[in-house]
Nucleic acid binder design. Structure first.
Lengths: 340, 340
DNA sequence: ATGAAAGCGCTAACAG
DNA sequence: CTGTTAGCGCTTTCAT
């Protein structure tokens, strides 16, 4: 199978060449030779290492010391900028001794259970599962410190970091109500629906307690992409308008972009005739026209908190079993005007 | 250090419980028990595996058989959707026996050399380096099949997949010339400049051979972000207009978004007064206003080709030493009108 | 059909 | 200071 690229040098090769033992090589290769080795031998070994282009084999090393140093991240769709920014936040605070890797799913937008299982079988120091659904959680048990990001349900033995939607939803409900909206529609996706449903339900509660409501059946699109939302909205938007809907809230900004495009194609004026709102506050949401009102989930900040939790869990200290992260509303032009 | 989460079960534990040898456990755990083991024993072992929640330790497994099965991807800035889509393409064609992981750099936008070194030390089946710069390439030697994506310079022993900018640049030059532009400005970034410079130079050649040119000093912004471009363009845009510049080409769509925003803030009409062009054709480029004209690099397709190359290199067959991938122009509203 | 044993390449005591 | 030794957990002949 694997092409052998002229077999990599081992510590033994180095030891032979430098005429020392592998133990010495190991010490030096790991910078632990602090006064335990003659400058002379040290040089010899270094030379040999250089000449043979030797590098410690991390697999063997990890096995030997029984310690891992990479933490992995799995998400439903790493293509969504939300997760990229989250990861970026994590990377920025993660202990330098740890290295971060994103497992890439193999089957389109679905949460790739296979990837999770690989992760669990793997030699990981820590694991972060973003938006795992119930089925996934039921199928697994942790093999390393694990953080669940905004899971619908928890899991014994795993920490979790929740999105506290309250602040954002209250603000959004008040914003919409204040603008005169009474009938709101919602757009979600078909698979991995848990997180988005939660967003929907939280908002719903707030709307109802203020005298408005999500009044028509949700639009459930198959994939969390702009295109998917656009395509599916084309049919439904006119009906919604007829039914008196004046605002549509999307579970994700990407979906909202699609709605914005659909509205334009159908010559439905935003925000005059229809207001549109997303969730996530992607970096592009201020840039589309009209710029999108959205519930800011602060992807980067979530990542930062997750990274800190991971540091504690992996490197010692008391693992925080549960934290919550608050959201807030960013009101922009797509809901700018008060209703007549 | 590592919290021990009640130590993971080993093959030995399973063997003990099921009263068989570890060899048998290994066979069964890997589904290689094809008629080599009594149904009875098989069951017993399976039960034990289940009861102990045993999972093969991939580190030990990899070490024992000397074969790797994960391929890694390193890029200057995984936050850029371009790389996410590229990865997605790779994932879609990669041999199912291989798993894909994205190494996340630790220091902002810079190409994280440390990540690359980790990758090289690691137990990888293959490695993809996106847009490596010369310094990086000089500092490393491959330890596994490696693909360089659009590197400025090649590296002995590594395959490469180049972006052939010719088609896109020719089309872009013709497009701009046809619209009446004679004086074009360029926006690039400070670090990791190689790929963007290449884009600039290729375009330059085409423009000059058609009687126009990149006529003012480039705007070099520190980071490849919308904000960075926006901030820095504010000063320079008016001067460009005064100097007779009628079009600005950006090395990346993200930069172009920034220019678009700057133009709006400065009340410079696009495309009437200024045309703007990007590179990459990010999924958002059709959605900003005015929608962005861009040289399509087809991130996903590049990923697909890289994935196929990797399959061949890792799983046998003749490794293609070098391929090229062609680009093309997507003309949209931001360059829609002919000059006066 | 199953087990014993020899590594994979490295690290970490422990001797000397 | 440096070498010897005993594993880490698994796979894989090779006996039985």
């Amino acid at each position: 199978m694997n092409r052998d690229q002229t077999r990599r040098a081992t510590a033994r090769d180095v030891a032979l060449l430098a005429e020392v033992s592998v133990a010495t090589v190991s010490l030096i290769a790991n910078g632990k030779s602090a006064g335990r080795v003659t400058p002379k031998t040290h040089r010899r070994v270094l030379d040999a290492i250089q000449k043979l282009d030797y590098r410690v084999n991390t697999t063997a090393s990890a096995l030997a010391r029984g310690r891992r140093d990479t933490v992995a991240f799995v998400s439903p769709d790493p293509t969504n900028p939300f997760f990229a920014h989250l990861l970026d936040g994590m990377a920025s605070v993660l202990n330098p001794a740890l290295s971060l890797t994103a497992l890439w799913p193999r089957h389109g937008d679905d949460y790739d259970a296979a990837a999770v299982h690989r992760a669990l079988a793997g030699d990981l120091a820590g694991l972060v599962l973003a938006c795992p659904d119930r089925a996934l959680l039921e199928a697994i048990s942790p093999t390393c410190p694990t953080i669940l990001l905004d899971p619908r349900d928890g899991h014994p033995g795993m920490s979790r970091l929740d999105l506290d939607l309250t602040a954002g939803s209250v603000a959004l409900a008040e914003h919409l109500i204040g603008l005169g909206h009474r009938k709101v529609a919602y757009v979600g996706i078909g698979n991995e629906t848990t997180a988005l449903h939660h967003r929907r339900n939280t908002l719903c509660d707030e709307l109802i307690s203020r005298g408005a409501s999500v009044a028509v059946p949700d639009l459930i699109v198959p994939r969390m992409t702009v295109h998917s939302a656009l395509e599916n909205a084309l049919d439904v938007l006119p009906a919604w308008i007829d039914a008196g809907v004046t605002a549509v809230v999307c579970g994700d900004d990407l979906l909202a972009y699609g709605i914005l495009q659909a509205a334009e194609q159908l010559s439905i004026a935003v925000p005059t005739t229809l207001s549109v709102v997303g969730h996530n506050n992607l970096p592009f949401s201020a840039m589309v026209t009209p710029s999108l009102t959205t519930v800011d989930l602060s992807a980067r900040d979530i990542g930062i908190r997750a990274g800190r939790m991971l540091n504690e869990m992996v490197l010692g200290g008391d693992p925080p079993p549960r934290e919550a992260h608050s959201t807030h509303l960013i009101a922009r032009a797509s809901t700018g005007l008060a209703r007549a």
